[in-house]
Design a protein around this nucleic acid. Structure first.
Lengths: 149, 149
DNA sequence: TTAAAATATTTGTTGAAGCAACCTTTTTTA
DNA sequence: TAAAAAAGGTTGCTTCAACAAATATTTTAA
C-alpha cells in the first residue's frame, strides 16, 4: 500500500512534497515498531539512542556534549536522560580529568549486556522487515542524503 | 555529506539498517526545518498536522477519531490538541448529529486563512530545498513504500 | 428488551521535552 | 594578568505526551 492510500490523501503539490510526507510517515512507522521493543526492556527511545552512542565509543567515555552532538533527535535534556540511565546502572558518570567542566559518561557492563540482548531482537526485526534488495537500500541512502544536501 | 559523516558512524550492520537510521535522521532534519515556520505562526507540529487534515476534509467536518486515524504521528492527545486550536479560533467543535458520541471538528475561516499564509512559505521552502529530479522523487516514494510493505 | 460489550471522546496523573537561567571552569583579550 | 566572554553541564518552570480510567452513547446478544 502506497503513502496515498495509507494517509488517504490523493493529491500532493509535487512528487517531492509527497516524498517529504512519506519520510515523516515512514519514520513514524519505524518508531512505532521500535517502541514496543524498547519498552519491553524498560527504555525510552532517547535512552536507547544514547546507550548505542556510548557503545560506539566504548571503552572510551563520551562527554555529554559529544552525546548531544551525535544524537539523532538533539535533546536539550541530555543530562536528565543520562540521570535515568545512571539510576538503572547502565552508565557511569565521572568528572573529566582533562576539562573539569566536562563529564565523562561510560557505558557499564550491564549496559553492554542489555544492548547485546536487544541487538538480537533488533536484527531479527531488521531481517524480517527488510523488503529491499542491496541495490535498493543503497539507492534509498543515496536519495535521502540528497534530500538533505 | 552522507549519513555516515553526519552522525560519525562508520559501520552499519547492513545497507538496510543504515537506511533505517537515515530515515530517522532525515525526518529529524525535516522537522527541524519546519519547526521554525510553525513556531513563527504560533503552532506546534501536531496542531499544524491536524489543521491540514481538516482542510483536506473542508467543507465537511472530521470526527476526532478520523483525525487520529489520519495523523502521521498518532497522538493519544488529540482532544487537547484540538482544545488549543479551538482556543485560538482556528477550529469549531460541535456534537455530531449522526452519532452523539462523536464530535465534529471543522476548520474555521481563520484556520483556512492561516494555512493559506503558511502554504506560501512552505512551498517556497520545498522549492528551494528540492534537490531531487522528478524521477528521483518518484523512486524515493517507491522505496519508502517498499520499506513499510 | 435489557444487560453486556463496544465505541467516541474527555480528563487525571505521571513522566519526558523544551527553554532559559544558573554555576563552574576554561579561554580570550585588552 | 585580570576582567570579559565562552563552553560544559545541571536544574526550575511550563508545556506536551502516553496511559489508563471515566463518561456518554450506540451496538450486540441472550
Amino acid at each position: 500500500m502506497g503513502i496515498s492510500e495509507e494517509i488517504k490523501q490523493e493529491k500532493f503539490k509535487s512528487e517531492f512534497s509527497k516524498a517529504v510526507v512519506n519520510i515523516l510517515y515512514t519514520n513514524s512507522w519505524i518508531n512505532q515498531q521500535n517502541l514496543q521493543l524498547f519498552k519491553s526492556y524498560g527504555l525510552t527511545t532517547p535512552q536507547f539512542n544514547i546507550l548505542r552512542i556510548l557503545r560506539g565509543q566504548h571503552p572510551n567515555p563520551a562527554t555529554v556534549n559529544l552525546l548531544i552532538d551525535r544524537m539523532l533527535d538533539k535533546s536539550s535534556n541530555a543530562s536528565r536522560i543520562i540521570d535515568k540511565l545512571e539510576q538503572k546502572g547502565l552508565v557511569v558518570r565521572s568528572q573529566c580529568s582533562k576539562d573539569r567542566r566536562a563529564v565523562d559518561v561510560l557505558i557499564s557492563a550491564r549496559g553492554l549486556d542489555l544492548l547485546a540482548k536487544m541487538d538480537d531482537e533488533m536484527h531479527a526485526w531488521e531481517r524480517s522487515s527488510n523488503n529491499l534488495t542491496e541495490k535498493e537500500a543503497e539507492m534509498l541512502n543515496f536519495l535521502l542524503d540528497k534530500v538533505r544536501s
